[in-house]
């Protein structure tokens, strides 16, 4: 396209154990649909959705990753470009919560230093099978000073809210462009607009 159809591009990344519902969460947000059958994600995938925040058209490119260990080498290559990362665990699966620590360490290793993070406690519609107390989730969120939401892709609880809150946080840290400089790109070229990579 000769002309951009958006103002800003934000890249988000979904990570977490296999089966916690990453793909379902993304599917609910991008297509407002839910698939009961579990189909394991083995390829990297993404969805693009344009939202409007504070008068700006922001295009969200949301990457969905494979949670299985054997695909981690593929997955980690996408951390670098992410501006926001959602960590997902399943409240009915204690193991997936315990592994949040590991995922957080991966972020520290591979992602940009100033990446925005968010914790999602998914499958909250199955409270009767909950094995991870709310308090625990809140505690780890506080320790790492990250936002958290209790979500259900199946029941469509807090999905939209989570996916709009993260870009808002990112937008808050984005430099504000001067009106008179709209026609002149001060920053260097490349695909990352509105965001300066510290790895240059």
């Amino acid at each position: 396209m000769a002309k951009k159809t958006y103002d800003l591009l934000f890249k988000l990344l979904l990570i977490g154990d296999s089966g916690v519902g990453k793909t379902c969460v993304l599917f609910r947000f991008s297509d407002d649909a839910f698939n009961t059958t579990f189909i394991s994600t083995i390829e990297i995938d993404f969805k693009i959705k344009t939202v409007e925040l504070q008068g700006k058209k922001i295009k969200l490119q949301i990457w969905d990753t494979a949670g299985q260990e054997r695909f981690h080498t593929i997955t980690t290559s996408y951390y670098r470009g992410a501006m926001g990362i959602m960590l997902v665990y399943d409240i009915t699966n204690g193991k997936s919560f315990e592994n949040i620590s590991k995922w957080l360490r991966n972020i520290d290793q591979h992602a940009n230093e100033d990446v925005e993070r968010m914790l999602l406690r998914n499958k909250c519609d199955m409270d009767h099978k909950r094995v991870v107390p709310k308090g625990k989730g809140e505690q780890i969120a506080r320790e790492h000073r990250i936002r958290f939401f209790e979500t259900s892709a199946k029941a469509n609880i807090n999905i939209e809210k989570a996916f709009l809150t993260l870009p808002e946080d990112i937008l808050r840290k984005t430099p504000v462009k001067e009106p008179n400089s709209e026609n002149v790109d001060i920053s260097s070229g490349g695909g990352v607009t509105g965001w300066k990579s510290k790895c240059c």
Partner: peptide, 13 residues
Amino acid sequence: QLADYDWTMAESD
């Protein structure tokens, strides 16, 4: 669709 070339740039980066 994400491409955002500056078609009048003087030099490539």
